[in-house]
Computed example of a mutant assay.
Amino acid sequence: MNEIINKKVEFRDLGKMDYQEAWDFQESIFAEIVSKKIKNRNLTLDLQEKTENYVFFVEHPHVYTLGKSGKEENLLLDEQGLQNHEARYYKINRGGDITYHGPGQLVGYPILDLDNFFTDIHKYLRFLEEAIIRTLLDYQIESGRIEGLTGVWIDHIEQKNPRKICAMGVKSSRWVTMHGFAFNINTDLNFFNHIIPCGIDDKAVTSLSKELEREINLNEVKEKVKNHLVDLFEMELVN
């Protein structure tokens, strides 16, 4: 583990950004941090540089993404169908199956060097989920996890009508993370009708606005999620 610990994290709101552009942006920062870690291994402690940490918030235009373990048949649209819905489709290098990103959805991309926090990818995923669970509790909505499934779910205990409100999918190399979570806030849920979300065909998808039956202030949600991430990971905010 790095002996130089840096818990400072820069949160940056990228606004609305094309998926490919955001992916390329993530990849470049991810590569820089991994490269610095490799370089540090050959340096004495006094010459090593601290590795940076970031959390990016973004909204994407309509897009479907398929993770490494996903099946293409879980996308129910052909090329023409994608064009008709003004949606794009990418196969990507995160874990998980297929999911949808679009306007009104809060997508979070933490690029963290877990050597600065803890080297446990399962704990990392649980902390991302917990930040969303705590945010939902701020809106008086009970949510949680369902064993064997990723993400955050409403009606996760009795499971009479379990519905996913936040999807997760991450990549990690040398304990540096990328990709992250997709939290449905004011999302048009009709776009989920064109996929089998995360390969699960017997459970529904929901959004914060659907559960509360009103439009939600996205910036307000971003602030809540940020604060919970800071508390859980014991981050130091970079202004």
Rank of each mutant, 00 (worst) to 15 (best):
F30R: 08
G104C: 12
F56V: 04
K50M: 13
Y100D: 08
F25P: 02
N74C: 02
Q26H: 12
L76G: 04
L45V: 13
E52T: 06
Y89V: 10
L47D: 09
Q80D: 14
Q48Y: 05
P110S: 01
E72R: 11
D115G: 12
G70P: 04
I98L: 12
I38D: 09
F30E: 02
H101K: 10
N93S: 13
K36C: 12
Y19M: 04
P103I: 01
D78R: 09
P110D: 09
L114V: 02
K91C: 11
I33D: 08
R88Q: 14
D115Y: 12
I111V: 10
T65R: 07
N93M: 10
N116M: 09
P61S: 03
Q48W: 01
T44Q: 11
Y109P: 06
Y19I: 00
T65C: 12
Q26L: 06
E73Q: 11
N116W: 07
V34W: 06
G95L: 04
Y19D: 01
K71I: 00
I33E: 13
T99L: 08
R41E: 14
E73A: 04
S35N: 15
N40Q: 03
P103R: 11
L47R: 14
A22P: 03
D46R: 12
L114G: 04
G95I: 05
G95H: 02
G70I: 02
E32Q: 15
E73F: 09
E32C: 06
L75H: 04
F30H: 10
L75K: 06
K71L: 07
D18Y: 03
A87W: 12
G70T: 08
P110I: 05
R94W: 04
E27S: 10
D18A: 05
N93L: 09
L112F: 14
E79N: 15
K36F: 01
G102S: 10
V55A: 08
E52F: 11
K50E: 14
T99D: 09
F57S: 03
E86Q: 15
F30M: 02
I92S: 08
T44N: 15
D46G: 08
W23A: 09
N74H: 14
F56H: 01
E49R: 04
K39E: 15
D24M: 15
R41T: 12
I92G: 07
T99H: 12
L77T: 00
Q80A: 06
K71C: 06
T51V: 01
L77E: 09
F57E: 05
Y100T: 00
P103F: 07
N93R: 13
L77I: 06
G67T: 00
K16P: 00
L47H: 14
L43S: 07
E79V: 00
G104R: 09
K39W: 12
F30Y: 13
L45F: 12
K71Q: 10
Q83E: 15
V58E: 04
K68N: 06
R88Y: 11
